[in-house]
Simulated scan of single mutants.
Amino acid sequence: MASLTPARALVLLTSGLTCLLAATAGLIGALLSGAGAALAAAACAAGAGAVGALLVRRRALAGFAAAQRQAGARGYAEGLAHGVLVQVAAYEAAVFPRSGPSGVTPEERAARRTLAYRMAALDEVSESVRKAAADVLAVLDRADRMLAEEAMTQLAAVVRKEYVRL
């Protein structure tokens, strides 16, 4: 069976409504005037339903496409915000390694710092996430653990708020 895409669901819905409209008109025509009137009423109602379905289809599919584009944009923005959070957290792990000061090489720390700064500087990242990431990166460059934890908490809250708002 074919998957139920929005276009297929729309076709099934409008054809079902057209059939229901034709059957209702046929029953009303049969009750009021007999078989001939029932057939004429059903044919007219089916034609009107088909024309209405065709008119609605274009608008509905345009709405589906717009909603899909908006969902894609929201997902992209959310992914970027989370990417900034991940890269900044990776840099934090390099600044404050759990395995001791010899756990991360200076080259690895510099690479993580570069990635975190590049990710936070992307144009597509929202201004609030960019500012919170800049605050964290500045604190991490000073290697202040207490302020870094507070700034990371703030960045995580901004990222969470950002994608909930989207």
Rank of each mutant, 00 (worst) to 15 (best):
A48I: 14
V88L: 03
G29T: 07
K131Q: 12
G83T: 03
G34R: 07
A94E: 05
T14M: 13
A22Y: 02
F96E: 06
R160T: 13
A9N: 04
R69E: 15
R59I: 03
G47Q: 03
A45Y: 07
R58T: 13
R130C: 02
G47L: 15
A93N: 08
V51T: 09
A50L: 15
L32C: 04
S33P: 00
R118H: 11
P106H: 01
L140Y: 01
S99E: 14
E124A: 15
L155Q: 00
R8N: 05
L12H: 07
M146P: 03
A111F: 09
R57M: 03
M1P: 11
R74A: 10
A90Q: 11
S126A: 12
G83M: 03
L80P: 02
A9K: 11
P97N: 03
E92C: 08
D141M: 04
V84S: 05
T14L: 12
A116K: 06
G16L: 09
E150G: 11
L27E: 06
A2V: 12
V159H: 02
S102R: 13
A62H: 07
A81K: 03
T114M: 09
Q154T: 13
D135M: 07
A62T: 07
G49N: 06
L147E: 10
L55T: 09
A133N: 03
A37F: 07
A156T: 10
L17I: 07
V159A: 05
R165T: 10
A81I: 00
T114G: 02
L17S: 01
L20E: 02
C44R: 08
T5Q: 01
A151W: 02
R98V: 06
A151R: 11
A46E: 02
A38N: 06
R145D: 11
G47K: 00
R130W: 02
V11K: 05
A73C: 03
R118I: 03
M1I: 11
G49A: 09
Y163D: 12
L80K: 06
A66Y: 00
V88G: 00
R69L: 14
Q87K: 10
L166Q: 10
Q87R: 14
R160N: 11
V86M: 07
Y76E: 14
A151N: 01
P97V: 06
A110C: 00
L155C: 01
A30D: 08
G75Y: 00
A9W: 01
A67N: 10
G63P: 01
V136L: 11
E92L: 09
A81V: 02
R160E: 15
R142A: 15
L61E: 15
D135T: 13
T114R: 15
V88Q: 01
T114C: 09
R98H: 05
L140H: 01
A2E: 13
L4V: 10
S33D: 13
L39R: 12
